[in-house]
Simulated assay, not measured.
Amino acid sequence: MSIVIINTGCSNLYSIKRSIQRLGYQVSVTDSIYDIKIANKIFLPGVGTASAVMDILKNKNLLSFITCTTQPILGICLGMQLLGTYSNEGNKCILLNKISYSIKKLPNINCTIPHIGWNTVTYTGSHFLFKYIDNNTRFYFLHSYYMNVNQYTIAVSTHGIQFCAAIAVKNFFGVQFHPEKSGHSGEQLIKNFLEI
């Protein structure tokens, strides 16, 4: 199986790679459109600002491919947010528009921003991404922006307000938390994605 992590220039690329390798899979970090097109599974990580990552994807001629791909793709943290319509961060950056919801800044409601640390994730119904993972398991978060809970939400968490912690729409999946930093449960989620 060919597995790629899209090189978005962010800091968590190699921690994701190590998590996948610990599961016994070979994986490459690449921005080669050829390598990405032939991959069986694609990871879309993101750390930092939406506009910076969108510019990187645009400059590497990857935007149209990512938008149209039928391959399973998992967005992590900012990578999940990129599946929305636009981000309110800065000058309303246009995103991939796979889900018709914008990305907003977390409100400071009796909590600190950014949201950093372990938090409970509650999934509704059964979805294969959470196979063999107990409901209300804690995952590691690091973010200041969020997506509202919507019809594509498969898990939620709360930090001041309830927000979307995981989404699924067709072949696009996303998690707001960092599975690569979330111990055994995070690696189980990555394994579940790889075994689609």
Rank of each mutant, 00 (worst) to 15 (best):
V156E: 11
H178E: 01
I66L: 07
I76C: 09
K104S: 15
V53H: 02
G125R: 04
G90M: 04
N171Y: 03
C68N: 13
Y145C: 07
N91T: 14
N61I: 11
C93N: 11
L74S: 00
T122V: 12
V175T: 05
T158R: 09
S144R: 11
I66A: 07
N148G: 09
M147E: 09
T124I: 15
A165D: 01
L129T: 04
K58P: 14
G46V: 03
L62W: 00
K170G: 05
K181C: 14
H143F: 06
Q81M: 12
P179E: 00
S100C: 15
H115D: 05
M54R: 02
L95V: 05
E89P: 12
G79D: 05
F65M: 00
L78T: 11
M147F: 04
V53T: 13
P45A: 01
S100D: 13
A52Y: 10
T122M: 14
C77P: 08
I113E: 10
T85F: 09
E180L: 11
C164L: 04
V149D: 09
H178K: 04
F173H: 03
F141C: 06
A52I: 12
P45I: 03
C164W: 09
L57E: 03
Q71V: 13
G46K: 03
N97P: 06
L95P: 00
N59M: 10
A50R: 01
G46I: 09
K105D: 12
M147P: 06
H127Y: 03
V47T: 10
N119A: 07
V175A: 06
T120L: 09
K105H: 13
N171C: 03
K60G: 08
H115Q: 13
P72V: 07
Y123K: 12
C93Q: 15
N110R: 12
T120Y: 08
K170A: 08
S157R: 13
L129C: 01
C93Y: 00
G46T: 09
D134M: 08
V169L: 08
T49M: 11
H127M: 09
G46S: 06
L57I: 00
L63T: 14
K181E: 03
G90C: 07
L106K: 12
P114F: 06
I94L: 14
N135M: 05
T122Y: 15
A50H: 00
V156T: 13
P114L: 13
N150H: 07
P179I: 03
I161L: 10
Y145G: 01
A168C: 10
F130Q: 13
Y140S: 09
H178Q: 11
E89L: 06
G75D: 00
A165W: 02
S144W: 10
I167G: 00
P45L: 07
K58G: 03
A168R: 05
A155G: 11
S182T: 05
T124D: 14
I99K: 10
K98P: 04
C164M: 08
L83G: 11
F173K: 00
N171T: 10
V53R: 02
R138Y: 11
N110C: 12
F177K: 00
T137F: 08
L142P: 01
N148Y: 02
T70S: 15
T120G: 05
N135K: 01
N97F: 14
F139G: 09
A166T: 06
G84A: 10
N88D: 12
G46Q: 06
L142R: 10
E180A: 13
G79N: 10
N108R: 12
